[in-house]
């Protein structure tokens, strides 16, 4: 039980996919203009990551070593297809806002990375927990970045205007602002980590 807890917690802090391993940046930066988009993307990634980790872990002894990567990609792409269809049917506005970045979950390096590094070598339960931990870590990082960008960049939180006494800096909801926020947050988190050790 303790081991499983450690698998879960590592994805959230010590091996956070965005801030420390630096994977899956493309959706992180592109959809973090608002908290709503970020939550949508975060949930979609958690779903795909957990499902693909479980399936790949189940099949880890059947998949031949040589063609494992294409096999993983097909598994991941199928789950992304499910997400795409579900989103189009039940959340068309979100689907429109996320646009091309939904199909791009297929090539989100976090998912393939966990398949290769963890699910292909570990039993099903551990893989599920690993996927959940990494997914939640991704979700939280995305949430923080999008909150910073939306509050400071457009003076809103999750679409609701907040009573602000400053003028929002439009740059933060533009693309260069995304890179700037990520760079500074990453530097800040490293700094906190260095203070602790």
């Amino acid at each position: 039980m303790k081991k499983l807890w450690r698998e879960f917690i590592k994805g959230i802090w010590t091996e956070n996919p965005i801030f420390f391993i630096v994977l899956g940046l493309c959706p992180t930066l592109a959809v973090s203009t608002s908290v709503n988009n970020a939550v949508g993307m975060g949930v979609a990634v958690i779903f795909v990551l957990v499902c693909s980790n479980v399936i790949i872990s189940m099949m880890r002894n059947i998949i031949p070593d040589k063609i494992r990567i294409p096999c993983y990609i097909v598994v991941i792409a199928s789950f992304v297809g499910i997400v795409e269809m579900a989103m189009k049917a039940y959340a068309p506005a979100l689907d429109k806002a996320l646009g091309v970045y939904v199909p791009l979950i297929v090539v989100n390096c976090i998912i393939l990375g966990r398949a290769e590094a963890f699910a292909s070598k570990n039993p099903v339960i551990a893989s599920l927990i690993d996927g959940l931990g990494m997914g939640v870590g991704f979700f939280l990082a995305l949430f923080v970045i999008s909150a910073v960008r939306e509050v400071l960049g457009s003076g809103k939180f999750a679409g609701f205007a907040i009573p602000v006494t400053f003028e929002p800096a439009a740059i933060l909801v533009l693309a260069p602002g995304a890179l700037l926020v990520l760079g500074l947050l990453m530097g800040g988190i490293r700094w906190i980590k260095s203070l602790r050790s």
């Binding site: 260069p176 890179l179 760079g183 990453m186 530097g187 800040g188 490293r190």
Partner: peptide, 17 residues
Amino acid sequence: ESLDGLPIAFIVASIMG
């Protein structure tokens, strides 16, 4: 030190943008 490597690369990319 905490900006070395990737963070500074992001900042460069941001200014380039």
